[in-house]
Design a protein around this nucleic acid. Structure first.
Lengths: 213, 213
DNA sequence: ACCTGAACACCGTTCAAGT
DNA sequence: ACCTGAACACCGTTCAAGT
């Protein structure tokens, strides 16, 4: 007898998110998920076709957490808020964030912030085509930043470690002096500030290049 | 008896890349990889600690394929070439490209393009800190674009499909009109041109915002 | 309609053994 | 030092059966 009155896609996705948040994405198996819901693994297959669909449902849950700013704020402020909110969701769910890069928003709730962003671009006079290009770039910056920040991309950068001084292989410092100089700085800065700084640059580029109608 | 004279990390990584390129990342198992090398699964563990190390080695192989431009080109042209080369590698190995987002460059060969990029920023007068910020943004744009282009992020965008007109659930077009307007454009453009356009915007933002020494 | 237990065809990896 | 075969503790998913 399941603990919840009835199993459905939403309750399954919520349970999956709990498992991923607390035990990591690797711990999410159909058996573990069934256990979390006090049911049998096979019960899940009556509500979702396969594990891929579970992951997709979790992604929609996360995307629905991204806040859509109120109308009338101006495109830069609107997009700044959306980007910050998306990053906040990823930081709240570090083990689940990789799913956001794998599944685009599909449900109406998950598309709410997309609608808000598109509207602010259109209201500011950007053409539909410019709006699409700007969205592409911002999605790219958002997903790329997540990879970098949560994947520990720079934390494990070789130049941030002490050089390997073995004799049969020349030290990295000697072949790659600029990597040795810049590498330590990559992991050094305040992540919030770095994110804002990069966002400034991207928004400035959009303002400078994209034509209005 | 192994087909190659001797097993080592490089030959294992090369065989793994062949399997991933031809059969997809899901087909890469230790058993399948051993088969490809005409050896037993357990032989691999004498050269690499686990499967994660195999994936990491494949990533280094891919990153080493990114071409380092010759010196003296100016920072914008240098970075343009690096970004194009990274994208070309990803498009040549679409099934393996996700590994680039998971593992940073570590070996000297894989770091060659990073060194070239850092040098061109420094030669143009960007401070070490500005260089690190610019690298962060460009890595973000590169990885994000890969997610978007190869993950079919926009190809499966709901707004790019015909609307669901069922009666018990209002059509997406009515709740999300701007998603309906812009969505189809996201998958429509020429990917090469879109990439270049986004790159223009990012480089323009870097030029406009980042301080020189 | 919804749930179940047993089974199938896989995994990555450990172990004890071979040369 | 390098490789092997058998085994362990898992997977996702199919199937036949239950209510």
């Amino acid at each position: 007898m399941p603990r919840t009155a009835r199993l459905n896609e939403r309750t399954i996705a919520e349970a999956a998110l709990v498992v991923v948040d607390t035990e990591g994405i690797g711990a999410l198996t159909m058996r573990r998920l069934a256990e979390q819901l006090s049911t049998s693994p096979m019960a899940l297959y009556h509500h979702l076709p396969d594990k891929e669909a579970v992951l997709e449902a979790v992604a929609q849950l996360l995307l629905a957490e991204v806040e859509a700013p109120p109308p009338g704020l101006g495109w830069q402020e609107t997009l700044r808020r959306i980007m910050r909110s998306a990053r906040a969701v990823a930081l709240r769910h570090p083990h689940a964030a990789s799913l956001i890069a794998r599944f685009p928003p599909r449900t109406p709730d998950a598309l709410a912030f997309v609608e808000a962003g598109f509207r602010s671009f259109r209201a500011a006079g950007f053409s539909p085509s410019s709006t699409a290009t700007a969205y592409r770039i911002l999605v790219g910056y958002s997903l790329g930043t997540q990879d970098v920040e949560l994947g520990g991309y720079f934390a494990t950068h070789p130049a941030t470690r002490s050089p390997n001084g073995s004799l049969d292989q020349p030290s990295t410092d000697r072949i790659l002096p600029t990597v040795a100089e810049i590498g330590p700085l990559l992991a050094a800065g305040d992540p919030d500030q770095e994110f804002e700084h990069g966002l400034d640059i991207v928004l400035t580029g959009i303002e400078a290049i994209l034509p209005r109608e």
